[in-house]
């Protein structure tokens, strides 16, 4: 095994081009476990901790450019307003110690369906900025996940950042685990309301071979909200609409039975989380509307 320590992003790209099998390591949450337990012996280990700008973020007009290695703790503390869904998801990642070191780059690189960031990124609408010596490209999050622990990266590419639209409405994230802290998702659900486009987006974790959106559920809800004039009248979403949305989210799942949970439970739980997060976000949207109206 060789240990590569690129001092800059350019050096990292060059190293990755030269050694496409090099395994990047930043927070170490996944890579070190695989090494400690002899599941993986990469030829090259490439430390990205020396590439400073991976730990930085910029809040722009429209979106946040979040460095791949910005620790989850920073996201929780600093980006709650801009990226509320991701901040909530960050708070559910493993333990404080791991949140202090891990970032979304690791979740995306591993592309496990259980990664906590995925549902929030899917719901918010994100693009993954990847780069190689050949150039930069931005991969829409919906096209990023290609299979169980497979992503859209080419062998010479590294994840530099994610671009996430700033929240224009309430967002929520829920995750089921069989413990009240430090737990891998049995399944997870992210929901974002986008009042500007009058759309909702979802993200589901650990209930299919890859993180997915519940597109039929989104379409149903978009139509139902539009038809009922809900975005304007701010009425409570009728229970039957919420339930149908939940059922469609369940139906979007393609889960397996494993030691963490049954497929049947995952489908059920995704439905419950979908209904609850819809209620929470919609209540919050209504509250914000009332405040605006009250102020006006």
């Amino acid at each position: 095994m060789d240990f590569l320590r690129p001092a800059s992003w350019e050096e990292a790209l060059a190293a990755k081009a030269e050694h496409p099998t090099a395994v990047p390591i930043a927070g170490g949450t996944d890579v070190m476990v695989e090494i400690n337990f002899d599941h993986r012996r990469p030829e090259y280990l490439m430390d990205l901790n020396r590439v400073g700008d991976l730990c930085e973020w910029e809040v722009g007009e429209e979106s946040v450019r979040l460095g791949a290695s910005v620790p989850y703790t920073r996201i929780m503390e600093n980006l709650r307003a801009e990226l509320p869904g991701l901040a909530l998801a960050s708070h559910t990642v493993a333990s404080p110690q791991i949140r202090n070191r891990g970032g979304v780059g690791g979740n995306l690189g591993t592309a496990s369906p259980a990664g906590d960031a995925h549902p929030a990124l899917l719901a918010a609408g994100a693009e993954v900025e990847v780069e190689s010596v050949r150039g930069t490209r931005r991969i829409p999050i919906d096209e990023f996940y290609k299979g169980v622990k497979r992503n859209a990266l080419a062998a010479d590419e590294l994840i530099r950042a994610v671009h996430v639209k700033k929240a224009d409405g309430p967002q929520q994230f829920s995750k089921v685990g069989t413990r009240n802290a430090m737990v891998i998702a049995v399944c997870a659900f992210g929901l974002a309301l986008h009042p500007e486009t009058r759309t909702v987006r979802t993200g589901i974790g650990s209930a299919a071979p890859t993180p997915i959106r519940a597109e039929a559920a989104e379409e149903f809800l978009n139509a139902a909200l539009e038809e009922g004039g809900f975005w304007d009248n701010g009425k409570i979403v009728t229970p039957s609409v919420a339930q149908q949305f939940a059922d469609l989210c369940s139906a979007a799942c393609n889960p397996i039975d494993d030691v963490r949970g049954t497929a049947s439970y995952r489908r059920h739980a995704v439905g419950v989380m979908a209904r609850r997060t819809l209620t929470w976000t919609w209540e919050s949207y209504r509250g914000a509307r009332r405040n605006i109206e009250g102020a006006a």
Binding site: F3, I25, G27, G28, N36, D47, I98, R101
Partner: peptide, 12 residues
């Protein structure tokens, strides 16, 4: 910053 030292590669 508190971290799990088992998840930090020595070279890091």
């Amino acid at each position: 910053v508190p971290v799990c030292s088992c998840l930090v590669a020595a070279g890091q």
